[in-house]
Design a protein around this nucleic acid. Structure first.
Lengths: 342, 342
DNA sequence: CTGTTAGCGCCTTCAA
DNA sequence: TTGAAGGCGCTAACAG
């Protein structure tokens, strides 16, 4: 334990060179300093033989950098699927030889402040400020002048670079999926119920409307309900009671789709035989439904990766919004496209 | 940015004392060093007025401690609900004035080794070695002689402290729930299909058998299937085709319960009217089903908290297994207990 | 290419 | 109580 670890001096001695030379070699300045290849080799071997590892704290004290990225979130690490954002962040960090430290505020501003303080004290090289639900945020003052990237949120003043799921484009691809299957003629939306500060709902609606417009097909109607399985079930059930028989449903998230499925089943309606369904979020739940529902996926992993890449990369950070593409998790909730034989 | 931050010297000067004194005050040695209360006060104010924050790297360089805990996991951060372990870890760390750094190996040993290296380089004060699925592991050699706590796993040699969900007790409470509702007379298990290295299945089965034994009721039977919604549906559907009409199902996890629900619905069986159901894992899925299924919850948050508390606490770490209680997420999948009127 | 020198900010004797 | 001094391990400018 306290075996006094191997230091640069040891390496230098072993390689028969000066500390300076050893340092240069390890910092990739051998070239510039025109150090003999043989010398470089000797240093390298010494490092290997001794199992030398630079002392990060010493390096930090000297350079004020830590090769560490902080990820600050409200609930991202907990409960939900959104934590795959951390997977993306961790992977990207690894690639850049960085490590990720996390801080979950659980929506508590004071807790958040403490985490920020801890991270700044540790001189993280950058901070990802993330939200579980796409929203507009007020970035704490303590983060001013720090390297920050907003993930799944934007600040009112647009003074930070932000990464957001491209919900509009995602919504369009949902509609296109229906169109390709030839069932875009009678499309209903289930779940329109914008939560304050949540941006996804309106964007999804906008994308759906746009796509239908281009197809020259009107939106048949909207069934409003909160984004929860139970509420969706009740709303759709009630709605179906009125005798409507929709051709296709666009559910604004997977839980809503689950509720809709339950109601459709109660009414003896088959998916995709009688009704086609597409959904949003692309959670595992989508694949568990029978049949699995085609769902426009929230690109959490990509968001995490891009945020960390921006922070670890050399490019300057400039205020901007970057829309990250959403993929489509295929399902069997839409009929196979009729393929003309030729 | 490079405004040369406030250092201890500044504080000392401002307080009109020596660096030594300031240091003592900040490290809680004022008492022992018999420093005048007034002096202490002056230092405290100086700290506040200057917004002084000790430089962590300098402290680390000097003390070899970082107030940082590493959490190493295979997939815990990703996709699944298990990430609430990180919430627990983060919260416990915060309470102990520590921060959590994460490393996700994605099941790759080399990647894991790299993360371990990074963490050790940064001199984390302890490491949580975690697994998404309860399993037996081989702890990497590089972790020997480090402060390590195993979370949701054990090593063959039992040479580390380990935290495991108390599956047996959890299973017993599942059966008790059925018994209290008076429906423990015809209990079937759905999902027995032990994955290699996964420990939960056998423990759950054992607990169920024990509890039934004590009730003097035999286990009616077992429907085997992998722990997936689709497989469970198919297995239960097939089984019901044979005409069996079970009184109660213990599903070995929530996805299995979901599949069972689907099959029961197909056969016109009502939950809990015709069949009672209890399940395991306590994921959100359990609450989304109709009716929500009562589920024995995996205590991920508690596991995370306990692991970090063990690491940040003063007590010595000794090899052991600590069984962490599993709560019951209530549902409406079991009839209300008949309450005698009196 | 190399050795020297100077800190980075903090903790911790030691002698005053 | 305090000032001086050493050192944690490393980087980097500078004069050979």
């Amino acid at each position: 334990m306290a075996v006094r670890s191997v230091t640069l001096v040891d390496v230098a001695r072993r390689a028969g060179v000066s500390r300076t030379t050893a340092s240069y070699v390890l910092n990739g300045r051998a070239e510039r300093m025109r150090i003999a290849p043989l010398t470089v080799e000797r240093v390298r071997s010494a490092v290997a033989e001794l199992g030398y590892r630079p002392n990060r704290s010493a390096q930090t004290l000297r350079t004020s950098t830590t090769s560490t990225i902080g990820v600050l979130s409200d609930h991202v690490a907990s409960g939900h699927y959104a934590s795959s954002m951390l997977t993306g962040a961790s992977a990207a960090a690894r690639r850049a030889d960085h490590l990720v430290v996390i801080g979950e505020s659980e929506g508590d501003v004071d807790l958040e402040a403490l985490h920020i303080q801890e991270m700044l004290d540790r001189q993280v090289d950058g901070i990802v400020y993330a939200r579980l639900v796409t929203s507009t945020v007020i970035v704490p003052d303590s983060l001013r002048d720090q390297r920050v990237v907003l993930l799944n949120c934007v600040d009112e003043q647009r003074s930070y670079p932000a990464l957001l799921p491209d919900e509009r484009a995602g919504a369009r691809s949902a509609v296109e999926t229906l169109a390709e299957a030839g069932v875009a003629g009678d499309v209903w939306v289930v779940g329109d119920d914008p939560t304050p500060h949540a941006l996804a709902g309106p964007l999804r609606m906008a994308g759906i409307r746009e796509a239908l417009d281009e197809l020259g097909t009107p939106l048949a109607g909207v069934v409003s309900c909160p984004w929860a399985a139970r509420d969706a079930h009740d709303a759709v059930h009630h709605w179906l009671m009125s005798g409507v028989r929709p051709g296709a449903l666009v559910c604004l998230n997977d839980r809503v789709a689950m509720g809709a499925y339950q109601a459709l089943a109660t009414h003896g309606l088959d998916v995709p035989g009688d009704v086609s369904v597409v959904s949003f979020d692309g959670t595992e739940l989508a694949t568990w439904l029978r049949p699995p529902v085609a769902s426009v996926e929230l690109p959490y992993t990509a968001l995490g990766e891009l945020a960390v890449e921006a922070l670890t990369g050399a490019e300057e950070l400039t205020p901007s919004i970057r829309w990250v593409p959403m993929g489509l998790v295929p399902g069997r909730s839409v009929p196979d496209r009729e393929r003309p034989f030729h």
